[in-house]
């Protein structure tokens, strides 16, 4: 193939990605602009794509408005979200790492069934289940507790699936060597296998953090001081256009933690996702 053809093709691809990327990034960019726009500039015709007078008013209003109208300070929602998200993330990583290790590398009765089961349950991991979980959460007396938000999200089939796929790339010899040295499975898992599974762990961490962080507390929580940040942002957005600036600034704060985590862990994610296939 002619070299110059490929080069021209690459430039075309680059241009396409750039144009498409600008469209994709525009709403995010606007969220930042709106968060820093003074209120009177939010509603002008024609709407502007920038602001010359950036201000922190929206952030200030957000802090005041939330504590005034909801009787709970903004920091409390942030704390709730962080507490719930971190608990979910840590437990999801630890549990799916151990289970993934066993499913990938150990032989025991029921293994084939469980492996097939995990692939099917990828389908049943969704917000439909929240509705069905409601009865259970009520029966367990967990309404209005952090547990109601944390427990249902701990066992994620996708995390288990990703861990299993990644660990199954580890050569069996390494595990056999551990067995000969007399290490038990727990030690083999955490001291021999996991140190080399940082990419997979980082991936599970990112997905767990992201889904937990964006979770609305829905009907599981109706006490104001236990609500999470996305729930409150949703309430703000629903309360109408007058709160647009506040909503935007809250959204920007919401967006930062997962994006920062993703940027730092991107390479690891790509490594793990390379093994994410389902062999059909």
């Amino acid at each position: 193939m002619k070299h110059s053809d490929r080069r021209a093709g690459n430039i075309a691809v680059f241009l396409f990605l750039t144009v498409f990327g600008i469209f994709m990034a525009l709403p995010i960019y606007l969220a930042f602009v709106m968060a820093f726009k003074p209120e009177q500039e939010l509603f002008v015709f024609p709407p502007k794509l920038y602001t010359l007078n950036p201000t922190l008013d929206n952030f200030r209003n957000m802090l005041e408005d939330l504590s005034k109208s909801q009787l709970v300070p903004f920091s409390r929602y942030f704390f709730n979200s962080m507490l719930v998200t971190l608990s979910i993330t840590v437990l999801q990583c630890v549990f799916s790492a151990m289970a993934g290790f066993v499913l990938a590398k150990c032989s025991f009765k029921g293994k084939n069934f469980l492996n097939a089961f995990i692939v099917v349950s990828l389908l049943y991991q969704s917000n439909v289940i929240y509705i069905m979980q409601y009865t259970l959460i009520t029966k367990l007396n967990m309404i209005n507790t952090y547990r109601a938000l944390i427990f249902p999200m701990i066992a994620s089939p996708m995390s288990l699936f990703l861990m299993r796929q990644s660990i199954s790339q580890v050569p069996d010899e390494i595990i056999e060597a551990g067995k000969i040295d007399g290490a038990n499975l727990f030690r083999i898992c955490w001291q021999i296998v996991m140190p080399n599974q940082k990419p997979a762990l980082a991936t599970v961490m990112i997905f767990a953090f992201q889904s937990a962080w964006n979770m609305q507390s829905g009907s599981f929580i109706y006490r104001e001081n236990l609500k999470t940040l996305p729930t409150v942002i949703q309430q703000l957005t629903a309360s109408g256009i007058s709160k647009t600036g506040i909503s935007a600034s809250a959204s920007v704060i919401m967006l930062l933690p997962p994006v920062i985590i993703f940027i730092f862990a991107r390479k690891s994610v790509i490594k793990t996702m390379a093994h994410s296939g389902i062999s059909g």
């Binding site: 709403p27 969220a31 709106m34 964006n214 996305p230 703000l236 647009t244 935007a248 967006l255 994006v259």
Partner: peptide
């Protein structure tokens, strides 16, 4: 990034 974003307020505007 969009799949992480919860910016319905922006889309509303």
């Amino acid at each position: 990034t969009p799949s992480m974003a919860n910016i319905y307020a922006v889309w509303q505007l």
